[in-house]
């Protein structure tokens, strides 16, 4: 007889309030940072016929596969000639992004929540397993999911990586923001152009993370999503 039919459920606390707030604050804040950043990027992306191999492209040396971004993308974003809008927002919201991110990391460390987030030895193996399972490969489906706590191996790796990426965005951002006063920092990151390249691809990384994250949340269903809003998850009571 299954537990559902026994009528026994429990409401379990899943995500602490602080984490939920910081997560949801970060969502629009990161969105504004990416949008305003793209408005700034536009300023150095348009004359490809003169500077075809610089910074915002996929390629190596004097070979460029393609440049970012195509005209239709900039038009869609209404990016042309909005550099000052981008600068204005970027240099305001960077403070919120930075403070929120530092507070989040501090909370993880102080509360001990980092233990459920930081990858373990088994995380890489679990992550591959979970990925194969999510790809609906028959042998992985037969085997079932590996045992997990709050986050599986793939989640541990992805969520820890995105936190590190946030830190890297602050660091590369500072290197671009103050390349004279903080030049040792800029030099450490490989110079000004390199810091811009890193900053840009971190941004692309956030976009990639966002797409996968939203997809996975959609697949995981309402109970999971709700837990990130209310903090609680409905679980079956184990009959032992």
């Amino acid at each position: 007889m299954n537990v559902e039919e026994s009528g026994q459920l429990k409401l379990v606390e899943k995500h602490p309030r602080a984490i939920r707030w910081m997560h949801w604050v970060n969502f629009p804040v990161l969105f504004i940072m990416i949008w305003s950043g793209l408005l700034i990027y536009w300023g150095d992306s348009i004359p490809p016929y003169q500077h075809p191999h610089e910074v915002y492209r996929v390629g190596i040396g004097s070979w460029t596969w393609f440049r970012l971004f195509p005209d239709w993308f900039w038009k869609l974003l209404n990016a042309p000639y909005q550099i000052t809008t981008g600068l204005g927002w970027h240099f305001l919201v960077m403070w919120i992004f930075g403070i929120n991110g530092i507070a989040y990391v501090a909370y993880l460390l102080i509360s001990g929540e980092w233990r459920v987030l930081w990858p373990q030895k088994s995380s890489v193996r679990d992550a591959v397993w979970v990925t194969l399972y999510d790809m609906h490969l028959p042998f992985a489906r037969r085997k079932g999911l590996p045992p997990q706590g709050k986050y599986n191996g793939a989640q541990r790796i992805a969520y820890s990586a995105v936190v590190l990426m946030g830190g890297a965005s602050l660091v590369t951002g500072l290197a671009i923001y103050k390349p004279t006063q903080a030049h040792w920092f800029t030099t450490l990151l490989g110079g000004y152009e390199m810091a811009r390249w890193e900053h840009f691809w971190l941004t692309m990384g956030f976009c990639g993370f966002f797409l996968v994250h939203v997809g996975q949340v959609a697949l995981a269903g309402w109970n999971n999503f709700r837990s990130m809003v209310s903090g609680y998850e409905v679980k079956k009571v184990a009959s032992d």
Binding site: G7, Q8, K10, L11, V12, E13, Y232, V237
Partner: peptide, 9 residues
């Protein structure tokens, strides 16, 4: 695990 409430569905 911190259980808030448990029992009847």
């Amino acid at each position: 695990e911190k259980v808030i409430t448990s029992g009847d569905a």
